[in-house]
Design a protein around this nucleic acid. Structure first.
Length: 711
RNA sequence: GCGCGGUUAGCUCAGUUGGUAGAGCAACCCGUUUACACCGGGAAGGUCAGGGGUUCGAGUCCCUUACCGCGCACCA
């Protein structure tokens, strides 16, 4: 009897040792796996942001992916799970900037590009190392020899290559358009990086001047100094007589020229049914101005301050300017109505800054342009079709609707960012000339901007395999099998990977998308720093063992649904690990002098149990293939505890003691234990591997490469 | 406004193609016997949110209402 078995199971001393054993075996790397393996199974790990440490959401991700990989590895697949980290451009830069501001009182402009990048790289390196060690603690059986970073040399080559290709195909263009400007972060952001917050606001109804015939409503009077038109619905009888007329006015001491136009975009039911058109500070108005060939004067600058007007307005913050203009309207008796309304205000996800729509010269990806090489399909088509044709399946399936809905509303993707940490836009300027790609030589100026972090993340399934080089890995492992990630980045990431892979390779990036939900605290609240209700996966592993944490995360957590985690729940699975440990002790004590026959002869009831086990394994194998890990884990727990331990072990005591069909009982104990250990291994790899090593004293095979039971 | 989820035992949640309602935790009673008190045995607990429909049969399919959560759009 192994001495370790005489004491309760201790995950703390065991798990580190076992992980080392796995790493040294080389089996994380598909090239080193035993036997000839033809079929591949590949997962690209969603690279965690190098902004800090891992949380329980990451732990769930790692657990799910490790379960899939270990299961397929045991089934004889050539399994590749490729790990990595994400530079997370804005998120990382703003985090480091905040720290520098706090500690040294300096901004990024005080330190300069080079110094800031140096600091961010240092931070990213540190953060990376923490993250990697956390992933290992969770028991992840990923191939560290292929680890990638979204901002390393190879990934930069992939980014530059695809940027040039898209530019040459006319899919990437530089244009002056309204963008989402974050005055706090001093950068543009994409539509998807906006979060709407409901706030109370005032809706003002007024006229520009006494002799202007139409009342308009707005919640942002300060933008009205940039108005060029008043738009009404073409069918709105109230205003028909005015359409086409033009007025020269003075609004808050600023001369403006207003044309009355008719446009179908106007909702006659809202407000007065007439809309003041501010092309430079509203997406819809900008489009309207394009249709009606109107001027687009900018009145607000990058710092959300007024860029026009005299003493009263120039340089004032928009909120102050609003007060000034409302006061002026009151004094001129032009203000007809003030109402309290609820308003969804656009804020930047990372900085919390209030978005100011501004016209800017930026780089965009055209999502509607037909691509010759792809049968004249647009990027939008390429993103939609694999799901329509069922080439890519989403689990749970109902998320497909959300996905399609997003595609419908998709506009051109603004990819340039005015931050320094990220892939530099590979464009060079000299006077009017533009060169995309390599530095053409001296006298050329490099674009100052960097790319949206999701641009490089979009390449993840194939940039990690060496693309644009034609590598063996690329042909072997792409398309990947499962993309497992949180539902909150379905648009950010999943859609962009489909876009990039379909465009660059003409194939899907993955066959299945498995979406997990948010891990919440025991009360159902999101874990956050401000609430201080976060649970650290490392602490859990320390206190209860990574196995217990994994089980607690997975049992009952159906795909796509949010789950709750508590120390109480985790403790229950620590007990489970110990239960397996103790059951093993019992089995070993009773079978030490017994040679397990290859085909045991069971008595009637043992035969029945043996058959039940086979049926059970069949059932859970089917469910494993259907990604129902939340069910399998629960069933295994229940089967081990309440069938194997409570019934079979208890029954065997009688038989062995009375020596009545004792051999039958012993054989049954042993086969049950070994079979269940194999089935449990993907879920709780550490304790099962440890027990396996005790059982297999003379035969040193690792459980991680044993065959998954099949009948 | 459009869309997607949810509503099942005291709590947290599962529930495969429609076929007698499940688990964990908590609470209750009993128990120290070849592993395990990080334990065992036992019992209790549910009009499956409300209403309607399809069906021999509905937690499951369809319609509808209410409430909760989320996503998208938009309020000029």
């Amino acid at each position: 009897m192994d001495e370790k078995l005489l004491k309760p199971y201790d995950p703390k001393t065991t798990e580190k040792r076992i992980y080392k054993l796995w790493e040294e075996s080389g089996f994380f790397n598909p090239d080193n796996l035993p036997d000839k393996r033809e079929k591949t199974f590949t997962i690209m790990m969603p690279p965690p942001n190098v902004t800090g440490v891992l949380h329980m959401g990451h732990a769930l991700m790692i657990t799910l992916e490790d379960i899939m990989i270990r299961y397929k590895r045991m089934q004889g697949f050539k399994t590749l799970w490729l790990p990595g980290t994400d530079h997370a451009a804005i998120a990382t830069q703003s985090k480091v900037e905040k720290e520098i501001q706090k500690k040294e009182g300096k901004s990024r402009y005080d330190l300069g590009r080079e110094e800031i990048l140096k600091r961010i790289n240092e931070f990213a390196k540190e953060s990376h190392d923490t993250i990697i060690s956390q992933i290992k603690v969770m028991g992840a059986s990923c191939d560290w020899s292929r680890e990638a970073f979204t901002l390393d040399k190879k990934r930069n080559l992939a980014v530059n290559t695809i940027f040039k290709k898209m530019y040459d195909d006319g899919l990437i263009y530089r244009g002056n358009r309204i963008v989402n400007w974050d005055p706090k972060g001093q950068t543009t952001i994409s539509d998807d990086e906006i979060v709407y917050e409901e706030r109370n606001a005032k809706l003002y109804t007024f006229k520009y001047s006494k002799d202007f015939p139409i009342f308009i409503s707005t919640s942002r009077p300060e933008t009205k100094v940039g108005d060029v038109a008043v738009a009404v619905h073409p069918d709105d009888k109230r205003y028909t007589e005015f359409v086409g007329k033009e007025y020269d006015l003075e609004f808050c001491e600023i001369p403006i020229h207003i044309k009355i136009i008719a446009d179908k975009e106007v909702d006659p039911e809202f407000g007065t049914g007439a809309l003041g058109v501010t092309p430079a500070h509203s997406m819809i108005d900008w489009e309207m101005a394009e249709r009606h060939d109107l001027l687009r004067p900018q009145v607000i600058n990058e710092y959300a301050k007024m860029s026009v007007g005299g003493e009263k307005l120039l340089g004032k913050k928009t909120t102050e300017a609003r007060e000034v203009i409302v006061e002026w309207l009151r004094s001129q008796d032009l203000l007809e109505k003030e109402e309290e309304i609820k308003q969804n205000i656009a804020t930047a996800e990372r900085t919390g800054g209030i978005i100011e729509p501004l016209p800017k010269l930026q780089w965009f990806i055209d999502v509607n342009k037909p691509i010759k090489e792809r049968n004249n399909k647009s990027l939008k088509d390429l993103m939609r079709e694999p799901f329509e044709k069922d080439e890519i399946k989403i689990i749970p399936e109902y998320f497909s609707k959300t996905y399609f809905h997003w595609i419908e509303n998709l506009r051109d993707w603004c990819i340039s960012r005015q931050i320094w940490y990220g892939h530099r836009i590979p464009v060079w300027y000299k006077g009017e000339e533009i060169v995309v790609g390599e530095n053409p030589g001296s006298g050329w100026r490099e674009d100052e901007d960097t790319l949206d972090t999701w641009f490089s993340s979009g390449l993840w399934t194939f940039s990690t395999l060496g693309w644009p080089e034609k590598t063996k890995d690329l042909t072997t492992f792409h398309p990947t099998d499962v993309l497992e990630t949180g539902y909150e980045i379905l648009f950010f990431w999943v859609a962009r990977m489909v876009l990039m892979s379909e465009y660059a390779l003409g194939e899907i990036p993955f066959k299945n998308v498995f979406l997990h939900g948010t891990v919440r605290d025991a009360k159902g609240q999101k874990m956050s720093k401000s609430l201080n209700n976060g649970i650290d996966p490392l602490e859990i592993a320390e206190k209860f063992g990574a196995d217990a944490g994994r089980m607690a995360l997975i049992v009952g957590t159906a795909p796509g649904t949010d789950s709750k985690i508590s120390e109480e729940k985790i403790k229950g699975y620590k007990n489970f690990a110990n239960k397996i440990w103790n059951a093993t002790r019992f089995v070993l004590e009773n079978t030490k002098d017994f040679n397990i026959p290859e085909t045991p002869s069971y008595d009637e009831e043992d035969k029945k149990s043996d058959e039940e086990l086979k049926i059970f394994i069949k059932e859970i194998t089917k469910e494993m293939d259907e990604y129902k890990f939340h069910l399998v884990s629960e069933k295994l727990y229940h089967y081990f505890w309440h069938t194997f331990a409570d019934i079979i072990i208890e029954r065997s005591k009688r038989k062995i003691l009375e020596n009545k069909n004792g051999d039958s009982a012993k054989a049954l104990l042993y086969t049950h234990l070994t079979t269940l250990l194999k089935a449990l291994h993907p879920f709780i790899p550490f304790v099962t591997e440890e027990i396996w090593s005790i059982l297999q004293k003379e035969n040193k095979n690792l459980l991680m490469v044993e065959k998954w039971p099949s009948y």
